[in-house]
């Protein structure tokens, strides 16, 4: 838990937005938490919207029995679902989710799992890799086709 939304709220929320499993770390243990905190600290429309959503989460959790982080997982998910469904909070909820994903998929630990689980190597866009030159013989069939454009006589 950290920042103005202490008591572990941000981490607990991000944990439910992007839950962990046997392979993937939970969102709350990644830099996703820092991304959300930073957005709130930066203020602006996005920071205000996300902060409002977290306040909403906190308020709905209280009505369901206590701090969000202490609620059973199904109840936490129900709280988030209720917040997402509120017209006044839905766009802020989407921003929160986007921030969580931005942080999560930037975390080196997550990048390593991504590579292991999907084959997508996040290092390649930074370093590149060799590929065989294009073999122009692949064009042979098409080259033999008749012209297929409309000549225009002026």
């Amino acid at each position: 838990m950290s920042g103005a939304h202490g008591g572990g709220l941000i981490g607990a929320v991000v944990d439910r937005l992007i839950p962990g499993d046997g392979h993937w770390p939970p969102g709350g243990s990644t830099v996703a938490v820092r991304f959300v905190e930073q957005a709130i600290a930066d203020g602006g429309d996005r920071g205000a919207a996300v902060a409002a959503v977290l306040q909403g989460v906190s308020g709905l959790a209280a009505r369901r029995g206590g701090l969000f982080a202490w609620l059973p997982v199904p109840v936490r998910d129900a709280v988030l679902g209720d917040v997402e469904a509120q017209p006044g909070w839905s766009s802020g909820f989407r921003m929160l989710y986007e921030l969580a994903c931005e942080g999560y998929y930037t975390d080196p630990l997550v990048e390593a799992v991504t590579r292991e689980r999907t084959g997508f190597d996040a290092a390649r866009p930074l370093t590149g890799m060799p590929l065989a030159p294009f073999d122009e013989r692949l064009l042979d069939r098409v080259r033999r086709l008749p012209p297929s454009y409309r000549p225009v006589v002026r």
Partner: peptide, 24 residues
């Protein structure tokens, strides 16, 4: 990339990684 794939295809919650692994 992973981020765009997640934002396009993966819901928040329990199904997140299953969707990501399906698409990414």
């Amino acid at each position: 990339n992973p981020l765009d794939t997640a934002l396009q295809t993966a819901p928040w919650g329990a199904g997140h990684h299953r969707a990501l692994e399906t698409h990414l």
